[in-house]
Simulated assay, not measured.
Amino acid sequence: MPSRRAYLTTLVAAGLAGCVGEGPGTGTDTDSPTATTAPGTIARSDVIVEAAAVQYSYRHIEQVDWNGIQPADGQFVFVTVDARPADSAPARSAFTLVADDEQYAPTEIRRWKAVDLDVPGSAYVPDREDEAPRGWLVFETPAQLESPPTLRLDRDPAPAEWTLDADLATAPPPAWEWSVDAPDTVAPDTTFDIAITAENVGDGPGAFRGAVNFSYPLYAPKGFDIPLDPGQSGTERVAAEVRDAESVEEIEYGIRTPVGETTVTVAVESDTAAE
């Protein structure tokens, strides 16, 4: 079957130095999502730090059947906290991330709901009656910190701090080149692959996160994560089907990534051509 290569290459550093004080997927940007209590501090027993992870981008629901990708100006530090054992759950504003003598307030997730994160739970919103006081906070920091970040909770009678076991926070950021392949034509009622290939041309490890958004006849996104060390390449194959699409001449698939987007068009053969 003939094929067409829809190609898009981008070479962009995933993080830019600067401070902003504003999901588990199949690939992880950090392999150490645990937290430990910082020496010399008093950790409150009624608030638990469950997990921490560093990501350079995240998927979010842009429409009901469409995923967008939000890249960080530097890096995102996600932290899941559980305040259900507490008599009263601390507000989001009581938490800060401390790193390299700077403090970062929780960032508001842009656009719609974030999905397929590397930490458990949904967003931490303890002031909502229908939400349990458990979930993640996200902080946006420079792309490479000099020391491991610390989560701080300012609350009476004493503050608490946890040093986050997130090695990626102090590593250089990745950067990406990528391409996508799809066939020119497919037979009716068949399944085929859309192949996304990424290369990490940066100085640090990371996950190339993206989504393939399907139009007719299947209105749904499929996310993909390709974890890569510096200098590595990898390919993710996303299965697509054209069931009940005999009468459609062409179907478009939108591919979103942290460093660009493109569209591939696949033609469905007529029944006569398929024979």
Rank of each mutant, 00 (worst) to 15 (best):
G202T: 09
D181Q: 13
F76G: 11
A198V: 01
T37E: 00
P173W: 14
E140P: 04
A175S: 15
V242W: 11
V64C: 04
Y58A: 03
V77N: 02
V186G: 08
H60S: 01
D82V: 02
P39A: 12
D118W: 14
A166P: 06
I61W: 02
D189L: 01
Y7W: 08
S270N: 07
T185C: 06
D46T: 01
Y56S: 02
I109A: 14
V98T: 06
E102P: 00
L16N: 12
A72S: 15
R4G: 13
F214D: 04
S179H: 09
G23I: 04
A143Y: 07
G135I: 00
Q144W: 03
V115L: 14
R4I: 15
V12H: 13
T263R: 15
L145G: 05
S147F: 11
T34H: 04
G135P: 02
D29H: 08
I48Y: 04
Q70S: 06
E249Q: 14
V49I: 00
P142Q: 05
P205I: 01
I109S: 02
F76A: 01
P2L: 12
L16V: 13
A83P: 10
R237D: 01
F78K: 12
K222D: 09
A51I: 08
V98L: 03
G21V: 05
T263Q: 10
Q70D: 12
P24I: 13
T80M: 06
T197A: 03
W176M: 05
V115G: 07
P188C: 04
D225T: 11
S233P: 01
E250G: 06
Q144S: 09
A169P: 08
G15S: 07
L97G: 06
D130W: 08
W112M: 10
E250F: 15
Q55M: 14
N67H: 15
D203F: 14
P148H: 03
P258V: 08
D101F: 14
Q103A: 07
A72V: 03
P172M: 02
G23T: 05
R256I: 12
P39E: 06
V98R: 09
T41M: 03
V47M: 00
G234V: 08
D156V: 05
F192M: 02
Y219C: 03
E131F: 15
G23P: 11
N213I: 05
R134Y: 02
I251M: 12
A220F: 15
A94T: 10
L228I: 01
I109Y: 13
P85F: 09
A53T: 10
S88L: 13
P142Y: 03
Q103V: 11
D127P: 03
D156F: 11
D82T: 00
D244C: 03
G260Q: 08
T28C: 12
I196A: 07
G135Y: 08
E241F: 14
K113H: 10
G121R: 03
I42E: 07
A43Y: 04
E241D: 15
E275H: 13
G202Q: 03
F208T: 02
L228M: 05
D130A: 06
T96F: 04
E177A: 10
D100L: 00
D154R: 07
E129Y: 13
D167C: 01
